[in-house]
Each structure stands twice: as structure tokens, then as C-alpha cells.
């Protein structure tokens, strides 16, 4: 039986038969369906995925006319991270003129709202000068990152230390107090950047510290939207479901803990977000076929229920993309094309 070049979720190369690839596609989709209580993929969708995974071509793309908008997290930071020594405005120009970006994002190297707050007035002139010199929409972005508000990094008792001691109520109270400060910081920085002219504010990696982190993101979105009705806010999630670190927090009467993408997007809509970025995590010990079918099952359910544009996350380790610093072109292009072809989405 023919063997096809394939990869695992960590990027390592393997050989698989078409039958093995199909079995993994079905298993991956059914795993998502079971976890999210959503429909698995249909036969023609499995057939399409099998076709692209059995294709001998290195690169796969969408059909003309099915292209989508691309948004980025921490864009300028990534230019510096790879050791290219250019100024951030130059980094933005690289995205705009050389990388075919549809939008771009100015970000600080310490990519969270808390550390940006004391230097926000140093960030604003850079944003303002970038806006004079560039053409495409420019976000200012950072992470909510509630973890920075717990001791020893922040003022509040550390819930991860309180919980093992059985101090559940104290841990919950710490989360509740911390999220109030996080909301203030996001609204403070977001307001300044919007008043400097940013086309949008990106709240990236929302929910990284669990349900309190996600709740703070939603409340901050609501406040910014009330203050600036025309503001564009993108909420990009940290993981595929909301970790119940507090476990009893609700928004608009809905419990946040355990929500998957198709439920999270309704919260983002209710808060007034303009764009929502859902996530499906990559399992490194499963095949690329398993991971991509699983990711598409989650994103398809989200896209079908969303009333706002969705841009699924497809960076390293999410959206069927492998977990390594240089994700292979074969996997990224297959994931990108398949996600765009099979899901009702508006960007990546």
C-alpha cells in the first residue's frame, strides 16, 4: 500500500497510508465533536482533507476568490525575536510591503497590558508616527495576562498557592480582585492607543490564566466599546476551552469555565468585540491529520454560529499547525487552505 509523507503534531516526519490518514481524520474530528458537543465533519470534508494530505505537492492553497483577511499577534515583536535588528516602524513596513499582510500590529516586547501601562506614553508617539508612514490597518496589541497580577509578580495572593492549601474561597477572591485591576489596565492602554489613532485594539491570548482572565477581557471590551462606539476590538483566545481556574465566574448569566470556541464567540459578541479569534490546540503526539480535522471541527462550529467576523488562530501549536519554531510549509499551507476552504470564516 502506498505510503505518504506526513508529520506529527511536533513536526517530525512520518510515513502513513491513506487508510491511516483517514482513520486519524475521523478520530480527530470525533474527539472535537465529543468535547464540544458539536457535529463531526462530513464525508466530503474528510475526502477533501485526505486529498490534500495525500498530495505530493509541498504547498497547497485556496482556490482563487476564497482568500481571507490576515490579522497577526505581536507582529513587530516577532521581527525582533528572530534577530532582525530593525526599528518597529520598519518592522511594520516589512509586514506591509514585503510580507503581503492585510493588517498589522504594533506591540511592545513585554507583550502584556500591565507592563505597557507605565510606558504607554512612549508607545503612543511610535504608533502615531507609524500611522503617518503606513497604509494598511494597524492594531495595537498585548495580552491581558492575569498571571502578572498574582504574587510575586503582582499585588494579589497567588491562587495557585492558595488552592493546594484548600483555600478555595481565598483563591477565588484573589482572582476577582485581580481581574478588576486588569480591566483598568486594558482600558487605560486601549484608550490611549485608540486616541493616538490605532485602527484597532487586539486583546491577544485571552483566557490564558483561565476564566477570570477571559472575564476581564470581556469586561474591558465592553467598557472600551461604551467609551468609543466605533472602536475595533479583536479578542484572540489563548486556548481551545476556558480553563476553570476560578470556576464560578459568569458573563451575561453564562458560566465561562469550560466554554469552547462556539460558546466563547457568543460572549465576545455580547461584549461588543468586532473580531473573534478562536483556538484549537495541537496535540504533539497525534498526527497532523488528526490535529487539523479536530481544529476544523471546532472552527466550523464557531463559524456557523458567529455573527461577528472570526479569525481562527493558526500560529505555532494552534489550528492544526505543528509545535516548533519553524513550522513546515507543507503543514502550514495545508492547514491554512483547509481551514479557509471548509469553515465559514472571515480571516486567520
Amino acid at each position: 500500500m502506498d505510503q505518504f509523507f506526513h508529520r506529527m503534531g511536533d513536526g517530525s516526519a512520518v510515513q502513513m497510508t491513506a487508510k491511516q490518514i483517514m482513520a486519524d481524520l475521523v478520530e480527530g474530528s470525533e474527539d472535537a465533536a465529543d468535547r464540544g458537543k458539536i457535529p463531526p465533519l462530513a464525508k466530503e470534508e474528510y475526502d477533501y482533507l485526505l486529498d490534500i494530505f495525500c498530495s505530493p505537492h509541498k504547498f497547497i492553497s485556496v482556490e482563487p476568490g476564497r482568500e481571507v483577511i490576515l490579522t497577526y499577534d505581536a507582529a513587530t515583536l516577532k521581527i525582533r525575536r528572530v534577530g532582525v535588528h530593525v526599528d518597529r516602524i520598519q518592522a511594520l513596513q516589512i509586514y506591509e510591503k514585503i510580507m503581503g499582510a492585510d493588517t498589522m500590529e504594533l506591540a511592545h516586547v513585554d507583550y502584556s497590558y500591565k507592563p505597557v501601562k507605565p510606558i504607554a506614553t512612549f508607545e503612543q508617539p511610535i504608533l502615531e508616527q507609524a500611522l503617518l508612514a503606513t497604509h494598511i490597518p494597524l492594531f495595537y496589541g498585548a495580552q491581558p495576562n492575569l498571571g502578572l497580577y498574582s504574587q510575586p509578580d503582582g499585588p494579589f495572593p497567588n491562587p495557585s498557592e492558595l488552592m493546594p492549601m484548600g483555600k478555595i474561597k481565598e483563591a477565588q477572591e484573589s482572582y476577582e480582585a485581580a481581574l478588576e485591576d486588569l480591566v483598568k489596565d486594558i482600558v487605560f492602554v486601549g484608550s490611549l492607543m485608540y486616541e493616538s489613532g490605532a485602527d484597532g485594539i487586539n486583546l491577544d491570548t485571552a483566557g490564558a490564566a483561565g476564566d477570570a482572565d477571559f472575564l476581564a477581557t470581556l469586561i474591558a471590551t465592553e467598557k472600551l466599546k461604551a467609551k468609543y462606539p466605533d472602536i475595533c476590538i479583536e479578542i484572540g483566545m489563548a486556548g481551545e476551552f476556558v480553563l476553570g481556574m476560578h470556576s464560578q465566574l459568569t458573563y451575561k448569566g453564562e458560566r465561562l469555565a469550560g466554554m469552547y470556541a462556539h460558546q466563547q464567540v457568543k460572549m465576545a459578541e455580547a461584549a461588543g468585540a468586532t473580531i473573534f479569534g478562536p483556538v484549537s490546540n495541537t496535540n504533539t503526539s497525534k498526527s497532523a491529520a488528526w490535529n487539523l480535522a479536530r481544529a476544523i471541527t471546532f472552527m466550523k462550529a464557531c463559524g456557523e454560529i458567529a455573527n461577528i467576523p472570526i479569525h481562527p488562530n493558526m500560529g505555532m501549536g494552534v489550528g492544526g499547525v505543528t509545535v516548533n519554531d519553524q513550522p513546515p510549509v507543507d503543514v502550514v499551507s495545508r492547514s491554512s487552505a483547509a481551514m479557509t476552504t471548509l469553515c465559514r470564516l472571515d480571516g486567520l
Binding site: 481571507v68 497577526y72 492585510d102 493558526m314 499551507s333 491554512s336 486567520l348
Partner: peptide, 22 residues
């Protein structure tokens, strides 16, 4: 990776009308 996405499924930014649709 950003370039791979831009080629595989992106609109193409200001080379075309990607920024305008965005």
C-alpha cells in the same frame, strides 16, 4: 509562517485589496 499563510489563503494586503477589505 506568516508568509506561508499570506500565500496559501491571504488576500495579499496592499499589493491588491486585502487592506481595504480588512
Amino acid at each position: 509562517m506568516a508568509i506561508t499563510h499570506a500565500h496559501a489563503s491571504g488576500m495579499g494586503g496592499m499589493r491588491v485589496a486585502g487592506d481595504l477589505v480588512a
